[in-house]
Simulated scan of single mutants.
Amino acid sequence: MGPDRALGFLNQMLWSSLWVAGPVLVAILLVGLVISVFQVTTQIQEMTLSYVPKMIVAGFLLIAIGPWMMGRVTQFATTLYLLIPTLAR
């Protein structure tokens, strides 16, 4: 296996991880932004006000799109396992 093939696998792995983790991270980012604006406008500086909604959104998204996320990771792992016999060439 040459360095170009290894870099190709690394590129695939990074894109797959971005697609899997992206929706949850973007949702948490948006919730955090909305809560920060709310805290600035109302001058409420409660720490749990920022963490609890983020955890609720993350939990809901993991339940809602978790099967898709696991399917994507499983598909990537399966393709890598199927490529093992061809790496010796």
Rank of each mutant, 00 (worst) to 15 (best):
P3K: 13
D4T: 14
D4F: 13
R5K: 11
A6Q: 09
G8T: 12
G8D: 15
F9V: 14
N11G: 14
Q12E: 15
M13P: 08
L14P: 03
S16D: 07
S17I: 05
V20C: 05
V20Y: 05
A21H: 02
G22F: 06
G22Y: 06
P23R: 07
V26P: 03
A27C: 12
L29N: 01
G32T: 05
V34A: 14
S36Y: 06
F38N: 07
Q39M: 13
Q39C: 09
Q39K: 12
E46I: 07
T48M: 08
L49N: 00
L49I: 13
Y51G: 02
V52R: 05
M55N: 00
M55Q: 01
I56G: 00
I56L: 11
V57Q: 04
A58D: 00
F60N: 02
L62D: 00
I63M: 12
I63Q: 02
A64L: 08
P67L: 02
M69N: 03
G71H: 00
G71M: 00
R72T: 03
V73E: 04
V73C: 05
T74Y: 02
T74K: 04
Q75D: 13
A77P: 01
T78G: 13
T78C: 01
L80I: 12
Y81T: 09
Y81K: 11
L82C: 04
L83W: 14
I84P: 05
P85R: 13
T86F: 13
